[in-house]
């Protein structure tokens, strides 16, 4: 019999499984949809590991824990350590100064030509040298492979914590329907533009339509993401796509010729403070509320859950119910 059952094979559940396995526990992973895919919100993520940028609006815990995410991930998948850039259009330069005041870990560079020759016309930029990015779908399949190598398969089955015995980690995201958990809708676009070269994620600050672009292999670019207080699960709206594409076009007009490969939408599970948490209820640990920080916060959240299970250590993300 397993020492620990994990329900939910998104980024949080998979990290919990891997951390537990590394701590020597026998684990089972159950997901009603099997291995990760378009059914889970982890699938739609950008894959930026950008704790300092997120600090502009997120709570300090995201900056502190997020700084370790790239190192965690590097043990599992390819991580590109090229930093990230933040730019603003000419008329929104005030936004750049404001972003700089509200974040740390950056340098103001006068000319980004040396870093991103294709975007040399966006002169001043903030360079967050210590940030990184990954390809989220690749990362998920690498996590699944790492678990398989450790003898853990993803079981496809309906399960709730009540169905199981012994210690349980519930990492079902929105499906867990926990008190205080809400959905925050996000929409994204994937473009193929082989003639555009970007080596690192880029954020465009804009008072109405902020945008980030994450380069992926094979000339692909992920454009994200809207953030709406809504639990509407429909596909991306025309308006969202229009806004994301317009912002990308403003950044580099060559995106107008890009192939529209994919659009997507899903809900980010979040608590009122937009911080992830481990909620303990008897033998169940609920890992949830990763909001827009799934890839940034899942390793730390998993590590705290396992440290609690194996050693009773209570980290800052643990809440007793």
């Amino acid at each position: 019999m397993a020492d620990l059952t994990i329900i939910g094979a998104g980024v949080a559940g998979l990290w919990a499984a891997l951390s537990a396995r590394k701590a020597g526990l026998e684990v089972r992973v159950i997901d009603r949809n099997g291995p990760p895919g378009p059914h889970g919100c982890s699938w739609w993520a950008g894959g930026m590991l950008a704790p300092f940028c997120e600090g502009a609006v997120a709570e300090p815990a995201v900056v502190t824990h997020g700084q370790h995410a790239a190192a965690f991930w590097a043990g599992v998948t390819d991580v590109t350590h090229h930093g990230s850039l933040v730019v603003a259009l000419e008329r929104d330069r005030g936004e750049l100064a404001r972003f700089a005041r509200r974040t740390t870990g950056h340098a103001l560079i006068d000319d980004i030509a040396a870093l991103e020759p294709d975007l040399a016309h966006h002169k001043p930029a903030l360079y967050f040298k210590k940030e990184a990015h990954l390809d989220p779908r690749r990362a998920l399949s690498d996590l699944v492979a790492a678990l398989a190598a450790a003898g853990v398969q993803i079981e496809r089955a309906e399960a709730t914590p009540e169905d199981t015995q012994g210690p349980v980690i519930d990492a079902r995201g929105m499906a867990a329907a926990l008190p205080g958990l809400r959905g925050v809708r996000g929409e994204m676009v994937v473009l193929r533009a082989p003639e555009i070269r970007l080596s690192r994620p880029l954020r465009l600050l804009h008072p109405r339509h902020p945008l980030y672009i994450v380069p992926r292999p094979d000339g692909l670019f992920m454009l994200g993401a809207t953030q709406l207080e809504s639990t509407d699960r429909r596909g991306a709206t025309a308006r969202a796509v229009l806004e994301l594409l317009s912002a990308a076009y403003a950044l580099d007009p060559r995106f107008a010729e890009a192939e529209l490969v994919e659009t997507g939408a899903d809900l980010r599970p979040a608590y009122a403070d937009n911080l992830p948490r481990i909620t303990r209820r008897g033998r169940v640990l609920h890992l949830n509320g990763l909001f827009r920080h799934g890839y940034l916060m899942a390793p730390a959240l998993a590590a705290q859950a396992v440290a609690y299970l194996t050693q009773g250590i209570k980290g800052d993300l643990l809440h007793e119910d």
């Binding site: 609006v57 709570e59 205080g180 958990l181 809400r182 959905g183 809708r185 709406l228 207080e229 809504s230 639990t231 509407d232 979040a270 009122a272 403070d273 937009n274």
Partner: peptide, 30 residues
Amino acid sequence: SPAVLEAAFRASGAAVATVSLRREAGQGQG
């Protein structure tokens, strides 16, 4: 975040809260 919204709202003592309906529509209503 909603937590900051709530804290700011209380600090403001505001007597009315305005809410935008158009884009923030959905079923869960959290």
